[in-house]
Simulated assay, not measured.
Amino acid sequence: MKKFMTSGAVALVLSSGVMAEESGAFVGLDLGIGNSVMTTESTFSDTVSNNTSILTNKVASVGNLRYGLMGGYKWFFSEGFGLRAYLQVNNGTNYSPQRDLHVSISTLNVMANVDALYNFYTSESSSAGLFAGLSFGYAIHYGKAVDGLTAGGLKNPSSFDMGINFGLRTIFAKNHGVEFFSRFGVIGASATGDQGGTETKMSILQPYAFGTRYTYNF
């Protein structure tokens, strides 16, 4: 009986040092690498022969630096599970590796995000876990590649953009956090236009972005 009581007391002392991550507001800075793929599809119609031909050109950029800010609120329903919602703004410029084109696409993303949180480790002042969720908002595309096409009658392809978030997050000293994030694009912005009788459709997808993020938790 004495041994059982002693073991129970030790367990109580150890468990008292374990605290679940608390709900609250947070802000952050992120720095990473991303890319974009611009696709133009032009449809040519021959009124004499009634033939239609389609020319597709796809230009993929190399990964380039992206940086931004974020802020939101997190809710924890148990020691291990939570949910967070946050706004994110980031910017960067992608350059095509095709030297003869000198294509550049700059993108300003204004995104709303919702992530599910799972902590697999929790102590008195730190925790570690995973997150996964959805990112959706507005992508503003500009640069030489976009300007060259809009000058010919194509509408600006700035519009809705959607992706999937996934990553690893840690909290230390109660208020500070470091995250390793990734985002995979699902839906990209697009626009259509008439360039001298030729119907052209342009789309810009952001296939991936990954990097690190610092957060401060209030």
Rank of each mutant, 00 (worst) to 15 (best):
193 G>N: 02
77 F>C: 10
217 N>A: 03
173 A>H: 04
144 K>M: 02
94 N>G: 01
139 A>G: 15
97 P>S: 15
31 L>I: 12
160 F>Q: 12
101 L>I: 03
136 F>P: 07
69 L>F: 14
200 T>P: 00
32 G>Q: 03
8 G>L: 13
142 Y>I: 12
92 G>C: 10
56 T>Q: 14
5 M>W: 12
92 G>L: 10
124 E>Y: 09
184 F>S: 13
28 G>P: 06
168 L>F: 10
119 N>F: 02
179 E>D: 01
172 F>M: 08
65 L>H: 08
158 S>D: 05
188 G>T: 01
2 K>E: 04
102 H>R: 15
60 A>I: 07
147 D>P: 00
111 M>Q: 05
187 I>K: 09
181 F>M: 12
206 Q>G: 04
199 E>W: 03
61 S>W: 00
102 H>C: 11
30 D>R: 11
149 L>P: 00
126 S>C: 12
41 E>I: 07
207 P>K: 09
110 V>G: 08
93 T>F: 02
22 E>M: 11
138 Y>E: 05
55 L>R: 12
43 T>S: 11
68 G>Q: 01
185 G>L: 02
143 G>M: 04
170 T>I: 04
199 E>N: 11
95 Y>D: 04
61 S>Y: 03
177 G>K: 00
88 Q>K: 14
160 F>W: 13
100 D>G: 03
205 L>M: 06
31 L>D: 07
180 F>H: 06
211 G>L: 09
106 S>Q: 15
86 Y>V: 00
180 F>Q: 07
72 G>V: 00
14 L>A: 07
93 T>W: 02
8 G>W: 11
124 E>W: 06
33 I>L: 01
24 G>W: 12
56 T>W: 14
206 Q>T: 09
105 I>S: 03
88 Q>G: 05
106 S>C: 15
137 G>L: 09
183 R>S: 08
189 A>N: 00
1 M>N: 10
8 G>C: 13
45 S>H: 08
24 G>T: 09
26 F>E: 00
169 R>A: 04
107 T>C: 12
34 G>M: 02
127 S>F: 14
210 F>H: 05
55 L>I: 13
137 G>E: 10
36 S>V: 07
20 A>N: 11
169 R>S: 03
40 T>E: 15
121 Y>D: 12
73 Y>Q: 08
189 A>C: 02
106 S>D: 15
20 A>W: 04
114 V>G: 05
61 S>E: 10
